[in-house]
Amino acid sequence: MFVTLLKFAQNRAAAPAFMAAHNDWIAQGFADAAFLCVGALAPNAGGAILAAGESRAAHDARIAADPFVAEGIVTAETYEIDPKRTVPALDFLKLPA
């Protein structure tokens, strides 16, 4: 499982020009069953993605393809998590022992 923080960067002012493409990219992540949750970092600091089901290399490639990342609107920082305890609804995130 991955948590990726997308923090606004130097080219933040260009965000409106790439918002439609960024939203299409997010929609594709959900369509591919790679994204579990996407949301804003408060207050107005960027975004966060909870993802699972891909290798680290595939996840990193997906993040690099985000128009916001490619255009320097955000910087991406990814953390890999090996879930040990979850509520029952999230048991699917646990890796086999």
Rank of each mutant, 00 (worst) to 15 (best):
E77P: 03
A13E: 14
V38C: 08
V38G: 00
A42V: 14
L6M: 09
A21H: 08
A13L: 10
A34F: 12
A27Q: 15
A70Q: 10
N44M: 13
A97Y: 04
A45F: 12
D32H: 08
H22Y: 15
T78N: 00
I49K: 04
D82C: 10
G72L: 02
P43M: 02
A33K: 15
G72E: 00
P96C: 10
L90D: 06
A51G: 01
A45M: 07
A76D: 02
L41G: 00
K7M: 14
L41Y: 04
A48K: 01
T75K: 05
A89K: 10
V3M: 11
A42D: 13
F68C: 00
A97C: 10
G53M: 06
M19V: 13
K94L: 13
D66R: 06
P16I: 11
A21I: 05
D60I: 04
A27G: 12
A97M: 12
A89E: 11
A17I: 05
D82K: 15
D24K: 14
P16C: 00
N23I: 07
G39M: 07
A97L: 11
A15S: 13
I26C: 08
A21Y: 03
Q28T: 09
G47A: 09
R12A: 02
A76R: 04
C37Q: 12
F68I: 02
E71W: 08
S55M: 09
V74Q: 07
D66Y: 05
A15H: 11
F18H: 15
P83R: 09
A42L: 06
A51W: 01
D66L: 06
A48G: 14
W25M: 02
F92R: 07
Q10F: 13
P43Y: 11
W25V: 00
F92Y: 06
A14W: 07
V38F: 11
D24N: 14
A13Y: 14
N11G: 05
R62D: 04
E54K: 08
A9N: 15
A65L: 03
Q28K: 14
V3K: 05
A34V: 09
I49G: 05
K7A: 05
A14H: 11
C37V: 03
L90M: 14
D91W: 07
L6W: 05
A65T: 07
L93A: 06
A42K: 12
K7F: 08
T78K: 01
A70F: 09
K94Y: 03
V38Q: 02
A48E: 05
A9P: 01
A20S: 13
L41V: 02
V87F: 13
A42S: 15
K7N: 14
L95A: 08
K7C: 06
V38A: 10
I73Y: 11
A65F: 07
M19L: 13
D91M: 06
P16E: 03
F30Q: 07
A17S: 13
F68L: 02
W25T: 07
L36T: 03
I81G: 00
A34N: 12
A13W: 10
D91T: 14
G72V: 06
L50T: 10
E80Y: 13
N23C: 13
K7R: 15
M1F: 01
A58F: 00
E71G: 10
L50P: 00
M1A: 09
D66K: 00
E77T: 08
P88Q: 05
F92L: 08
